Amino acid sequence: MAFEFIVEALLARKQDKLWRKRHSLSPGVGPLIEVDGQHFLNFSSNDYLGFASSQTVAQAWVDGLSEYGSGSGASPLVTGFTQAHLELEAHLAKALKRDRVLLFNSGFAANQAICQALFARNNNCGADLIIADKLIHASFVDGAQSCQATFKRFKHNDTHHLNDIMARASASSNILIATEGVFSMDGDQAPVAELAHIAQDHNAWLMVDDAHGFGVLGNSGLGVVEQHNLSQNQVPVLMATFGKAIGTAGAFVAGSEQLIDYLINFGRHYIYSTSMPAAQAHATLSSIKANENPQKRRLLQTRIAQFKHLADKANIPLMASDTAIQPVIVGNAERALSISEKLKQLGIWATAIRYPTVPKGTDRLRVTLSAMHEEQDISALVDALQIAISQTPK
């Protein structure tokens, strides 16, 4: 029988406590979600600032739908590129101090497009090199593994290891160093300024995937390049998404005039995909402009500090993160699932993240905080974590 491995693979996933399943959510209010008729405080959303449920952004969607309709109708190179897309790209390019910006339907598509276009099989790039942080997102890993360049990894945030790899690299190669700005599972930040210095020393390009930093970090919420005042020369390739702190969907790549023109002409994920709806682009720009007011970002930082303080008092071990992503390592998949289920019984939704999403032995609860959370919500989370952890054997 064809594809017999499917049954075996699914059985193994269940036996190893790594089974994945979906939950259908009903509309909630603020940080509350409803699942199967029960209500939970949601600590698993990437909507860090609450823009996904913002009336301002919702009205921008309505306005965009009224003006542009519900879809785009074609790829950007046919008839799918509208004034709304152009305005969003132009605003981002000016704010980020980049030559140009190009919109994508997802961060996954953008990361793949970068790898596959810069290291296309017909470019004779067998001697070229992609060097990525060990914990970079799966979308970039898949993109890097699907092209002709040699793909290497450096230890997480270990610039000494990166320097060792660079010292052995051919000076004539095209080299792309890649990292996340804020790491999606650990919540820590990359030493982007130091990485930029290493890249320039070796005539390489640095690419930053700032999916979890964009919207949250920096004086205007423009992410790690604003936070560290990094120029286009220092970070030639910047990718970020709108589906986290911005509260809509899609992604962008920012860089030089030549890079964007190259992606328009050779980025298959851009050329052959239907464009994001213009209404989405319109709502995204509205959200980015609303985020220029620092109120939500300041409130998020207050909630992060409160959670870390209360968790420390409760002897709940946290990782070294100052961002909205606050992982609680529990060590194995079965215990992570058990704690997550106990939290649900206490009205808390905090998803268990297991191998292969994270390395073996680092299974965890990935707690994410939002500006929507109230002070009492954070207190309830810490109390519930203390109970659930203490009642779950190691």
Rank of each mutant, 00 (worst) to 15 (best):
Q232T: 01
F307M: 10
Y262I: 03
Q295C: 12
A290C: 09
T284A: 10
T248E: 00
I260E: 12
D312N: 08
S273V: 01
T274V: 11
S286P: 09
I304Q: 13
V235E: 01
P236C: 08
H228L: 15
N265Y: 04
G255F: 00
K244E: 01
L222C: 05
N233M: 09
N265E: 06
E292M: 09
F266C: 04
I271A: 08
K244H: 11
S321F: 11
H309P: 07
A240V: 14
V235H: 03
I316G: 08
G250T: 09
A320H: 12
T274E: 08
L300Q: 10
A314F: 08
M319V: 00
L299P: 00
K296C: 13
A251N: 04
A240G: 13
N233C: 09
A251W: 06
R303T: 03
E257D: 03
V235K: 10
H269K: 07
V225H: 02
S256V: 01
L263A: 06
A279W: 14
K296M: 14
I316C: 10
M319H: 06
A314Y: 05
A245P: 09
F242C: 13
R268I: 00
A311T: 01
A254L: 08
Q227P: 01
P294I: 15
R298L: 15
S321K: 14
P317C: 01
A249D: 02
A254T: 12
F307K: 00
